[in-house]
Amino acid sequence: MNTFNNNSMKWRYLKQHIFFGLVRASALIITLALGGIIFYIVYNGIGAISWDFITKPPTDSMTKGGIMPAILGTIYLTVGAIAIGLPLGIASAIYLTEYAKQGRIVRFIKVGINCLAGVPSVVFGLFGLGFFVILMKFGSSILAGSLTLGFLILPTIIGASEEALKSVPQTFREASLSLGVSKWQTTFRIVLPNALPGILTGSILGIGRAAGETAPIMFTAAAYFTSKLPGSIFDEVMALPYHIYVLATAGTNIEATRPIQFGTVLVLVAVVLGIDLVAIVIRSYMRRNKRW
């Protein structure tokens, strides 16, 4: 009996070890893949990075000089996308969770939003071209590109906001309403402030995506080369993802631009991480006195 027990215990421990091993290996593979990609980019790109590279425009058919206009363009487009996507997305989520009567129509809208999330980004690009660039006559511009990217990240922001709003305890709403505070005020003074950290967490994903997408901006905002920096939101801009795409596929001398391509990729990754970092800092600041 004793030996049987020992064996069965051993077998159970073994199983446990195998299982933990597998889980650990999965985590390790993901970390290694991520580390590998980052290492590859940094290793190949770091040589191109210099003060001139990030502060000067390109020269000599893109084979020399910097990428400053593309960095600036990506920041403009991303900030524009946030300025459009975040308020619109939060407002939609507030309507869906706080105001709309739960039923068939709301379900239909939610299905629609989920479908939107699955639409390939090139389709957003073509929509932006047809609607903002041509029909609304914005031309290929920061405005058209920001709107297109804003719509692209809308489903992510709505989804994250809905979850965050739902996680605010119902008792907070009841407490506020029972004091004779209106629903509007309750939403803005109690529900939204408590949901904001969650909303930002989810929105970070969308924001990173907005900065890195190529297809939505290639028809709506991005230029192969601009001789001067944009003066208004109706001007075209260079943008990092599009710059990489152009250098890697359409340049006059693709091989000669290789170091610049890697350098640009490194900068793009850094910009995306930078945007994420800002959001994380804001979030942790807002979370400080939240506990329930």
Binding site: P169, T171, F172, E174, A175, S176, L177, S178, L179, G180, V181, S182, K183, I190, N194, N289, K290, R291, W292
Partner: peptide, 19 residues
């Protein structure tokens, strides 16, 4: 109803202070 709730207050089963 907002006016009604200003005159008729409520205390709930579980304490629910705001954060």
């Amino acid at each position: 109803p907002v006016e009604i709730r200003r005159k008729i207050g409520m205390v709930f089963q579980k304490p629910n202070p705001f954060p």
